[in-house]
Simulated scan of single mutants.
Amino acid sequence: MTLDPILDRLADLGGDRLLVALVGPPASGKSTLAEALVAQLGDAALLPMDGFHLDDRILTPRGDRPRKGAPHTFDIGGLSRVLDGLRAGEDVYHPIFDRSREIAIAGAGHIPAAIRTVVVEGNWLLLDEPGWRDLGPWDLTVRLDVPDEVLRARLADRWANLAPAEAAAKIDGNDLPNAARVRDGSRPADVVLGV
């Protein structure tokens, strides 16, 4: 997947700090593309939305653990406050999600005030629903468009370490419904990249 359409749009933007929203369904390649974009830009940092996952100690009593990754399982207020700090040009610390332990680690990421471009990566950044639609304004929005059959294959690889029934529950009960919600419920993006 080429970065050129994103780089071309960024080259036309002015300002001291730019916030780029990179969205797409689970297993669409957001993290890989975001990391490549940050590396290419040089004067850039990555803010993964996954750091704002609510902890299992909150989700489990609510009955939301099986839906971890759905919009209501994130700390949208915390994300909004971090974005406000970034827009103000501040030096910002943020949580990072450790997938191997299924927990967010507070203060594990740092974006210095001198960084010009921040690539924010996540499923729901353009979701046209209360709270989520208020996360902007964004200087540039990018959406990955990946066919369901490709997502299913990637998700099967992601959950290959689980028992088949558990993997199927994650894929069909959470990940693919989330993918449909990203596709059908997001606002239009400035740049759409297909696979």
Rank of each mutant, 00 (worst) to 15 (best):
L127K: 03
W124N: 03
V195Y: 13
A163K: 12
P5H: 02
G24D: 11
A165Q: 15
I6E: 10
R187E: 10
S186V: 05
R154F: 02
W132S: 02
G24L: 10
K30V: 13
E35M: 03
A70E: 08
D145Y: 01
W159C: 00
P147Q: 07
F52C: 08
T141K: 07
A44D: 09
G63H: 05
D128P: 04
A36V: 00
A167G: 14
D134W: 09
G15D: 10
P147H: 07
F52K: 06
N123C: 06
R62M: 14
I171E: 06
N123Y: 04
L22F: 07
E121R: 02
A180D: 15
P61N: 05
A108Y: 09
P164K: 12
L22D: 07
D148C: 00
L10S: 08
L176G: 11
L193C: 03
L83P: 14
D16Y: 00
R81N: 12
A168R: 15
R87L: 12
V23N: 02
D157C: 01
Y93S: 13
V23W: 00
R65W: 04
E166I: 08
R81G: 11
D172L: 14
G85F: 01
P177R: 10
P66W: 01
E90F: 00
A27F: 04
R183N: 00
L3K: 03
M1F: 14
I58L: 12
G69A: 04
A27M: 08
G24N: 09
S186F: 04
I76A: 11
L79S: 09
R152K: 09
G107H: 12
P137E: 13
L33S: 05
P5E: 03
D128S: 08
D16P: 07
A11F: 03
V192N: 07
A189C: 09
A153S: 14
N178T: 13
Y93H: 14
D91S: 10
L41S: 04
P71D: 03
P137A: 07
G173F: 07
R158P: 08
P112D: 13
L155D: 04
A11E: 15
A21D: 09
P177F: 09
D139A: 05
E166V: 14
D4R: 15
A45L: 02
S31G: 14
D148P: 01
F97H: 15
V120K: 02
G69N: 06
A39N: 08
R65H: 06
A36G: 01
R116F: 06
M49G: 01
V119L: 06
E102R: 06
D64V: 00
A167C: 10
